[in-house]
Design a protein around this nucleic acid. Structure first.
Lengths: 263, 263
DNA sequence: CAGTGGTCTAGACCACAGT
DNA sequence: CTGTGGTCTAGACCACTGT
């Protein structure tokens, strides 16, 4: 698969072009799970880049979990599928779209109001500070999935009530109109039984099992952007997630732990 | 906070010593959320290392989510708490210990048997291939939390039935006695109602809400190591997780996206 | 032994932010 | 303009793996 044409005049960094070519090789089946990828030296020589640049391309693959390095042996394609971690920070719109469902929403409330204590605490606001509240019934292929109630600090997105169409993606509007990118969220999930009022809206029997979500989302600097309380029907929704260990990208058994104390 | 003493004769890499010093500064409160950390040039000059080495220390912090870089401005401490992502791949023993509970287990079964079809599929074995089955009642401070049933391919850990004390940590034994490190797991969580038999063992009312977990764990090369089915009481257990967006460590709004297409 | 990845150096040019 | 992070070079030594 080497060499190939590098574009040295492009704005695209060299390491990124190399990384993309390697990913392409994986997707095209030139490189299969367990195969070694070209060594850093080989990339360096055949493409005429320095070894540090080749290394940056290779490490970016390891960082994503696509490959793993073994000192003295080489770097190999991981057979763990699905480069994209599921259960990312993503809106309902994004999540359902990725699953191939047609998402839609019925807006039950979209208004400004003073922050109740639970919301104020999550968003690090004073109690009573102005927030925007958006309550929506979420549907996939016209079937009710859950009830979501989002709360946002009004001062972060002052024009939102006037400009945002609440049937569309909130995250997209936050990014495009207010320069706010939600990058991380902390979520607490509990299981419980649905109450009679919510059961009617969701069209399920009373006391059906449900997921209860409390999610606080943050911008990159740690500023709270959104606090969401949701109820999702257990018979229509399940949580799929990938868990990792923090030493994912550290050296393997032979290298690590014995000579170097990491955390 | 700079300079400080670097040990150039240590087996500990320089970038790692720098990274640890910066983390120490954060934990000691010398660096607070939102503060800039010393620039790469400053670290380079004051510690007498090359800029690439300083950069490696700084980037490792960004990679962990402890800090974030803005081109042209600097690198800043993130105010998002808890460097350790919760909901890592970890054993019950590790999870409860980290929460300050005293974990214990009652072994209900520990035996070899042929793989049923669901297990065989998850572990990529032939139906009927020999597996080790370990069923345990999990307790925190002597109170029942859940029922776990783990299945492992027998050929991966042949002596396990004889050498492993099933009241201790399975992950620790896999690593120490069989050289297998569990690094990633895919998990499906559903909510449901507990049946009468499990309810008796868990000492909860029948039809109480519960979490149902199906977890498949993998070694770094993608080989399935373990398949676990669990039931956890919803009134004693909740899921706390951190969700991230995949572009966490990419350049900010001013730099990214406009000049470079990433994924 | 040769080949691999892990670390490190001492420079360089660039795009961008803030003054 | 200076200072920042982003990228890149052309070398170097080391520890480790497999032969």
């Amino acid at each position: 698969m080497l060499p190939f044409a590098l574009n040295r005049d492009s704005v695209i960094p060299l390491y990124y072009q190399i990384q993309q070519r390697l990913l392409e090789g994986i997707n095209l089946g030139e490189l299969k799970a367990g195969d070694p990828i070209p060594s850093e030296q080989e990339i360096s020589e055949k493409l005429g880049v320095s070894r540090m640049t080749a290394r940056q391309a290779v490490k970016s693959l390891c960082h994503r979990g696509v490959a793993y390095s073994l000192r003295g042996k080489g770097t190999f394609i991981s057979s763990i599928k699905l480069e994209k971690n599921f259960r990312q920070v993503q809106s309902f719109t994004e999540e359902m779209g990725a699953l191939g469902y047609r998402p839609s929403s019925k807006v039950l409330a979209f208004e400004a109001q003073p922050a109740p204590s639970e919301v104020a605490e999550a968003l690090k606001l004073a109690v009573g500070e102005k927030i925007i509240r958006l309550r929506r019934l979420r549907m996939a292929n016209s079937s009710p999935m859950g009830l979501e109630c989002a709360h946002l600090p009004h001062r972060l997105c002052p024009g939102l009530l006037e400009t945002f169409d609440p049937r569309t993606s909130l995250y997209q509007a936050l990014w495009e109109n207010h320069g706010i990118r939600v990058l991380v969220a902390d979520e607490v999930v509990e299981a419980g039984l649905v109450g009679p009022k919510d059961a009617r809206v969701l069209r399920v029997p009373s006391r059906s099992p449900v997921f209860l979500f409390n999610r606080t989302s943050y911008a990159r600097d740690g500023q709270p952007v959104e606090f969401v309380k949701s109820i999702y029907c257990a018979d229509r929704y399940k949580i799929v997630s990938r868990l990792t260990r923090m030493d994912w990208e550290l050296p393997g058994p032979s290298a690590g732990r014995r000579t170097m104390i990491v955390d």
